[in-house]
Design a protein around this nucleic acid. Structure first.
Lengths: 129, 129
DNA sequence: TATAGTGTAATAGAAAACTAGTACACTAAC
DNA sequence: GTTAGTGTACTAGTTTTCTATTACACTATA
């Protein structure tokens, strides 16, 4: 897994796992790969993975069973709430950033639209939900 | 100045100054506040500010004159290019993040539109460019 | 009961970021 | 020439993050 060197690794791991849960790659109730396996596949230390998991456990999204494994909460409401929370924080960040650059609301939408069109053209991976 | 504790402080300082340049608060040719003054106003160490400035000097956006001060490049093309670069990187980050959450292109635009409407309603600070 | 696999935590060391302090070099004004 | 203000850089210490290593506790299986 490739890491941005501006953000702590444990935080990026946490985000990556949240993305998998929200996108459905990990369903409510699913068991996560073992800590040691995640460490190997991400090429990081076991404790770094544990650090990421700890926060997700504290936030109630991951349920930990010592000796058995870590599981995605089967409370779909928790996952839905997490989804809304992440989407809103991503939008807020973009909005704040573009707003600080004096870009109007209309321009923001226009720029995103153009960006998406370029992504669709160059990648051909325009997924419809 | 308030800092996000997930990103190095020098990097946030750099971004903040780039925002001021692109938004026009700092015009091409303008002199920046002295390193020591920025350190005081941001409540950080002089060397941290210098670290941020060093990168901007290396990137050609800031021109340094020892004993005289630091100046925004008067090459408007550099500023324009920086603007496009930042906008694109912000859009890419949002696109990638929402795409990983399995959100379709149409949904992305819809979500941003709704978010903007909510911002405009609650803040009343909808600026037109 | 023993073993393998699981999560959790502690210790020690390294690297990066930040701070405090200090000093040097350049510039402009008096 | 002196002074004040400017940018640049070094040393030393602290904090945070990460790694490596080790060990402990829990669980399921044979």
């Amino acid at each position: 897994m490739e890491f941005d060197d501006k953000v702590p690794i444990y935080y990026q791991i946490k985000t990556a796992i949240y993305d998998q849960i929200i996108s459905g790659q990990l369903a409510p109730g699913d068991k996560l790969p073992a800590i040691r396996q995640l460490a190997v596949s991400m090429t990081v230390n076991v404790n770094t993975v544990q650090r990421a998991l700890s926060e997700m456990i504290t936030e109630g999204v991951i349920i930990s069973r010592r000796g058995r494994g870590n599981f995605v909460t089967d409370n779909a409401q928790v996952v839905e709430q997490l989804k809304q929370q992440l989407i809103t924080s991503y939008l807020k960040q973009l909005y704040d950033r573009l707003h600080r650059l004096n870009i109007s609301d209309e321009q923001m939408i226009a720029e995103l639209t153009v960006y998406i069109e370029r992504q669709g053209d160059s990648n051909g991976n325009d997924i419809e939900d």
